[in-house]
Nucleic acid binder design. Structure first.
Ligand SMILES: [Mn+2]
Ligand SMILES: [Mn+2]
Ligand SMILES: [Zn+2]
Ligand SMILES: [Zn+2]
Lengths: 136, 136
DNA sequence: ACTTTATTGCAACTTAGTTGCGTGAACTGT
DNA sequence: ACAGTTCACGCAACTAAGTTGCAATAAAGT
């Protein structure tokens, strides 16, 4: 379990440190993207510095083990593993800021060939901003 | 032209000041949302303070003449006038941060009744994040 | 075990966003 | 046109997210 995480970190060319394992394990156990603050709070029992966890998140992202996405007003990080489907839409509550995955939504460009080409190409991250069920 | 803007500001219960008129005129002439920094730079010829323009944006938003939307890493403001179609998707470049309107895109929820109700209700702001044509 | 080099902890810094407060400008009513 | 009232502005300070320099420390290769 954790051994597999260590292997993936090492295979990515990064040294295996306790904080990196903890960060990767946390995000693999969570079914939604977390931001830097949420990660530090989730690992508050330990003594790792904000900057350390920040660099862990950035290093793991650059190594391809996480994905960083701008959700709402902060950057969020999501595990990038074979299980979790790769690019899928996300929902952001404009009231409380909570984030959840919304893989069931599909986006259709118009027939007119206008706007950025990446939309037609399908290489875009989709976000839906609105009130969550708790905030309506 | 500007007289109409002044009327709309006054009708909204706000005092007509030079900076408010300038901010509202700028955003009515621009076909995409601007953030606070872009507004201050566009009006840099004048001497208005950042805080003044910030409060102008917030006041005009609260009055319903602008709409504030979290695009990319900053808040953006868009004119909310009868001409410009109301809620429409926006495209954000993940590389250079530029924003453009993408009214031609439609979003379809799945048949399964899962996820936040506002998606099915259609009361969500749609955002597409990807590389713009200049950044590919 | 030793050497090399990546990583950590700490503190400082940048930028976006926000607010308190005294001065000054916009409206209201005469 | 004028005075009084209230709102808005300018300035400076502040918070929070994100980021970085540097010396101390720990991981990997031998
Ligand atoms: Mn997700
Ligand atoms: Mn728009
Ligand atoms: Zn909510
Ligand atoms: Zn771009």
């Amino acid at each position: 379990m954790i051994g597999a995480l260590k292997d993936r970190i090492r295979s990515a060319g990064l040294r295996v440190t306790a904080s990196r394992v903890a960060v990767l394990e946390l995000l693999n156990q969570t079914d939604r993207p977390l931001n830097h603050l949420e990660v530090t709070e989730s690992l508050a029992h330990s003594t790792w510095d904000r900057a350390t966890l920040y660099r862990n998140l950035m290093d793991l992202t650059e190594a391809g083990l996480l994905e960083r996405v701008s959700l709402g007003s902060t950057w969020h990080f999501e595990a990038q593993d074979p299980d979790h489907a790769s690019a899928h839409p996300h929902f952001v509550c404009t009231e409380c800021g909570t984030v959840e995955c919304a893989p069931e939504v599909t986006v259709t460009p118009s027939k007119k060939r206008i706007g950025p080409k990446s939309i037609r190409r399908g290489t875009v991250q989709v976000q839906l901003h609105g009130l969550c069920d708790d905030c309506v």
